[in-house]
Write a protein that binds this DNA or RNA. Structure first.
Length: 1051
RNA sequence: GGGCGCUUAGCUCAGUUGGCUAGAGCAUCUCGUUUACACCGAGAGGGUCGGGGGUUCGAGUCCCUCAGCGCCCA
């Protein structure tokens, strides 16, 4: 159709199909927008900028419905602002998503070729991941385009491209120079298979069957009366090789009492089914107190007295310490401490200044610290340790027990807590700056409640670990060399600063003192006293080469993905260069994202924006809901309940997807979206509810027609060969139907535009319904504008839906049918219809860009010139049209009341017709008893009763008398009599009236009660009281009418 | 353990500072193919707003409490 619009064929509205062919139209329209350059924004000092940077989707895989929601909301804002005259830039791009992407590609290579990344080497692996990235980036950007996203594609960035890389190095250098970046030890989640740390949210806890081993550690030189052994229990026996202490509670009696009183409190509130269990626990606790407390206190005293234990197998003396981590209510009450291999023990180690011994290599085997256990795997070591201890008679007991095991969600292997060197960003001052701008509302977070989480997370000011042991990412631009002594260090520094390629502008030096503070131990472990680090600001081949010639080695690790995404709002605009784009479009206007990355991403963008530019990155943040499946679970790739937006687009069109998404975006977070597969068999189309079972399947069999179809998970050729069963949801049906309704209302308009002549609208010709639609249009456009500007998307869609369907289609267009039949009224009616449709299309465009654009261009063929005050040529594309701004004078409460009277009367007529089962064409007569004012206000619309309810008004005014046989409706202070001479179904009418009677009586009772309450009458605002009085009086009149009618009908 | 949400019709959800008889879509039932639309039109039925308590003349809305569900952080 858009292609047609370019050719000069004479338009024939009869050619317009009765359904919107979105499949064809969307492609053509998008191509039109692209070639029209509508998405491209250039700095222009004469216009105000409005900027959004896309939350760059991960190149891990294709987009799902969560992304569809996120991007729809952004596009709505961009299109709205573009129409409002802003110079709107939507900056697109993708994120390299470090570990997620590398893990996926590694897994694929392993599955397909049986090779590991070490077989391929760094360069080759990175090349392979780039291939993957190219493929998915294309898919992702394609999905965005199909959704109608009006991104400035000429500016597309990737977090790992050269422009972003430069921003990363400049930022890193700056922070390094400010001593805000340092290297230090940290216990991390180590994936021994991938050979890297994984973040906490990439760890899954699994409950598995395991054992609890009880060991005896000998006491060194026990005093008389003291036990020769201390018993400890563990689920990880092999870690005992790295034990550096055993802990006992500092006040076991108090700890036991506390637990006991907590249990008792719980018992009081417990459900019947729990009582027995809790009572047993209390009993066990009391037994424990009598049997064990004395010995625990003795151990505590021994610890305070400095008693040592001998760690078996290693023959290493270790301390007995007191710490609250030891739970007197559990096991032996003593706990072994392995600070380098357990997060809790690590904390104990820090509190008690214990040595931390790392016993593991990066590949998960044991290292030299473990002596004869070296190079065993953890599993092998476990067997040997247990066997050896048993041989020594130190294994007391093995207990079966369920244990929580952390598992890497990337590789599926157990996570090892591991103490390694990591790079950190010091957060104290940086975090504070990001807190300040949110507290002052310079950056405003919507909905506001999310500020709390943001502030409390930043308030902890925990340093940010930024190094990742990966190959896919920005390699840390630091070259290091160990310096055994201070002198070596000074010498090296001189050598470096003496390099011809070196300057303070592009390189910075930091010296790191060894974390091993004991000089003896350093000697023993051959650790240098110092490490010297040089950070290089930008790619500088000369300097990098010179450093390497001096023996410095580049850090192998790459940066956390979030380090580069934190720069996104300015790196995409060309920072560190002072580009015209940066100058003009930064700070950006809005950031629209999901709540799970408020801390990971939003907070860090604020930090980096402030650090790098001294300016906030955006004024306003909108956190949108999450989409849950029918079981209330969040959609995710691993669960398989994600939905490909293209499924929805194929089935319902992009506009329906977008409208559906916007309609879900209410203030209340999280929306359930129950989904079904639709059987692709044309004769079947059966809908199959998506369940936990079938949601991950590549092929599903339709229970009705028994034919198989493929799903979005189909990867094998034989699966893909099957017809695709798309995912559907009722939500999109509603939106699709709405699209079609709009299409057909417009079609009606086109069909009635023959002989259209453009001219300003003559105010004298305006009828009540014209004024009404203008008044409604004024209200709706104001409300929609306000709603969208405040991110209340669902409010906007509802307003638009109700207006378009209930006001425009059901009333305005219906009434116009009558007027089109009259040649005198026709030209004005045409102009009004064209104008109203024009405005409606503009209002709907941000939400439903395709169908509105299609209609717009269609309308341009039949009525290219239009307007209210003056008829103007319409813009060629709707995307470039201006946002409606109706003169406030068009709003009229009186007109809306007047029209509401018509609607209410019409409603009553229709109800009676329906109750009386009158055939649609059977004409009835009716009259209305009301005051003069009411009669006058209804008069202009009397003829429409005929066209819209086959009813003829025979009389109206205070003197109207009811016909002999009639149905009476009392409402709104008037009485309507529908003449049912020879037609009446008495029983039906009596039934209706009885219902009315009951309802009125109930309401009257309630109101009388309220009004007889002295306090109400005296305390409530007078207008409220008066309203109640008026309403009561009217109800009483109504009731009287109903009773009279009933009496008459019953004879 | 701490924090933040949610619970309104069979289903999915609206309900802005407390104030007329708590709304919508889908589903259900009745009627209808009048040349924009059956992805349609007309109408109907369906809710003691999770339980309990409080503040108030008045509570779906504010406060407390309990229960269930979800998310985030530890």
């Amino acid at each position: 159709m858009t292609t047609e619009s370019k050719t000069a064929t004479a338009p024939d509205p009869a050619d317009i199909p009765s359904r919107f062919d979105f499949e064809t139209a969307e492609k053509e329209i998008y191509a039109d927008w692209m070639s029209g350059g509508w998405f491209h924004a250039k700095p222009d000092p004469d216009r105000k900028p409005y900027t959004i940077v896309i939350p760059p989707p991960n190149v891990t895989g294709a987009l799902h419905l969560g992304h569809a929601l996120n991007n729809t909301l952004q596009d709505i804002m961009i299109r709205l602002k573009r129409m409002q005259g802003f110079n709107a830039l939507w900056m697109p791009g993708t994120d390299h998503a470090g570990i997620a992407t590398q893990a996926r590609v590694e897994k694929r290579i392993k599955d397909q070729e049986g090779k590991t990344r070490h077989d391929l080497g760094r360069t080759e692996l990175v090349r392979r991941i780039f291939q993957w990235k190219e493929q998915y980036e294309a898919r992702i950007l394609g999905q965005l385009k199909q959704m109608g996203c009006s991104c400035d594609w000429d500016r597309t960035r990737f977090t790992l491209d050269d422009v972003c890389a430069r921003a990363v190095r400049h930022t890193f250098f700056d922070l390094f120079k400010k001593s805000l970046i340092y290297r230090g030890k940290r216990l991390v989640n180590w994936d021994t298979y991938l050979g890297t740390t994984v973040s906490d949210d990439e760890v899954e806890n699994k409950t598995v069957q395991g054992n609890f081993w009880h060991f005896m550690y000998p006491v060194i030189d026990p005093k008389p009366g003291e036990p020769p052994h201390v018993i400890v229990a563990t689920t990880r026996p092999e870690t005992m090789l790295g034990d550096t202490a055993v802990a006992v509670h500092p006040d076991p009696a108090a700890a036991l009492s506390k637990v006991e009183s907590e249990l008792k409190a719980k018992l009081k509130k417990a459900a019947a089914s729990e009582i027995e269990g809790i009572e047993q626990q209390i009993e066990a606790l009391q037994t424990r107190r009598t049997e064990m407390l004395a010995s625990l206190e003795q151990l505590r005293d021994m610890a305070n007295d400095g008693r040592m234990l001998m760690l078996p197998l290693m023959d290493r003396p270790i301390s007995l310490v007191t710490d609250v981590w030891a739970k007197p209510e559990l096991g032996s009450g003593c706990v072994k401490i392995t600070p380098a291999h357990d997060p809790n023990d690590y904390e104990v180690g820090k509190r008690c200044s214990l040595p931390m011994i790392n016993i593991m290599n990066a590949d998960g085997t044991l290292n030299a610290e473990t002596g004869s256990y070296q190079s065993l795997t953890m599993k092998q070591a476990r067997k040997k340790v247990v066997g050896d201890l048993e041989a020594l008679g130190l294994l007391k007991e093995i207990e079966d027990r369920e244990i929580e095991m952390p598992v890497s969600d990337r590789s599926g292997t157990p996570i090892e807590p591991y103490l390694t060197d990591q790079w950190f960003v010091k957060m104290d001052t940086l975090a504070q700056s990001a807190m300040d701008v949110v507290e002052s509302e310079e950056v405003k977070i919507n909905p506001q409640r999310y500020t709390k989480g943001y502030l409390s997370w930043l308030g902890e000011k925990r340093d940010w670990p930024i190094s990742r042991q990966l190959w896919w990412g920005h390699q840390i631009p630091v070259w290091s060399v160990p310096c055994p002594t201070q002198a070596d260090c000074d010498q090296m520094r001189d050598k470096i600063t003496g390099l011809s390629a070196f300057s303070d502008e592009i390189a910075a030096i930091e010296v790191e003192a060894s974390s091993e503070t004991d000089p003896e131990k350093r000697k023993q472990l051959e650790l240098p006293d110092f490490n010297l680090h040089v950070c290089v600001q930008d790619e500088s081949a000369d300097l990098e080469k010179a450093l390497e010639e001096l023996g410095l080695v580049r850090e192998e690790d790459v940066l956390d993905t979030w380090f580069s995404s934190a720069l996104w709002p300015h790196s995409t605009l060309g920072w560190p260069d002072k580009t015209a784009e940066l100058e003009y479009f930064y700070p950006t206007s809005a950031l629209i994202t999901s709540r799970d990355i408020i801390t990971l991403w939003v907070a860090r963008m604020v930090i980096m924006g402030l650090n790098n530019l001294g300016q906030i990155p955006f004024d306003s943040v909108f956190i949108h809901p999450k989409i849950l499946d029918g079981n209330g679970e969040t959609m995710s790739k691993s669960k398989g309940n994600g939905i490909d937006p293209l499924d929805v687009i194929d089935n319902f069109g992009a506009d329906a997807l977008r409208f559906g998404m916007a309609d879900l975006t209410t203030e209340t977070q999280d929306v359930r979206l129950p989904v079904k597969y639709e059987c692709p068999n044309e004769d079947c189309k059966h809908q199959i509810v998506q369940t936990v079972k079938n949601r991950t399947l590549a092929r599903v069999q339709c229970p009705k027609c028994k034919q198989e179809f493929s799903t979005q998970w189909a990867e094998k050729d034989e699966d893909r060969a099957l017809p695709r069963g798309p995912v559907t949801s009722e939500r999109f049906e509603v939106a699709r139907n709405f699209t079609n309704k709009l299409w057909n209302a417009s079609r009606f308009a086109m069909l009635n535009l023959e002989g259209y002549s453009a001219a300003p609208i003559n105010e004298a010709d305006l009828t009540v319904e014209d004024r009404w639609i203008l008044s409604r249009l004024t209200t709706v456009s104001n409300n929609v504008t306000t709603a969208l500007e405040n991110y209340r998307y669902a409010q906007a869609t509802r307003e638009l839906y109700d207006f378009a369907w209930d006001n425009f289609c059901s009333f305005y267009v219906e009434i116009l049918k009558d007027r089109f039949a009259n040649p005198d009224l026709r030209p004005h009616a045409q102009r009004m219809l064209v104008f109203a449709l024009d405005q409606l299309l503009r209002l709907l465009h941000p939400v439903m860009p395709f169908v509105t654009e299609a209609i717009w261009q269609q309308l341009n063929r039949f009525a290219p010139t239009r307007g209210l005050d003056s008829a103007q040529p319409a813009s060629e594309c709707l995307i470039g049209a201006s946002w409606p701004q109706l003169d406030a004078k068009w709003y009229s409460a009186d007109i809306e009341t007047q029209f509401a009277r018509f609607q209410s009367s019409l409603g009553s007529l229709r109800e009676i017709r329906s109750r009386q089962n009158l055939p649609p064409k059977k004409e009835v007569k009716f009259s209305i008893r009301c005051d003069q004012e009411y009669a006058q206000s209804l008069t202009p619309m009397t003829s429409y009763f005929k066209s819209m309810a086959s009813a003829e008004l025979t009389g109206m005014g205070p003197d109207v008398l009811p016909p002999e046989t009639n149905a009476t409706v009392a409402s709104d202070g008037i009485e309507m009599f529908v003449d049912l001479e020879g037609l009446i179904d008495k029983a039906a009418e009596i039934k209706r009236l009885e219902k009315e009677e009951k309802k009125a009586e109930g309401n009257i009772m309630g109101k009388e009660k309220k009004l007889s309450n002295e306090k109400f009458v005296s305390s409530a605002p007078p207008e409220i009281v008066q309203r109640e009085r008026d309403s009561l009086a009217q109800l009483k009149e109504q009731l009287a009418t109903v009773k009279a009618s009933l009496k008459k009908l019953r004879g």
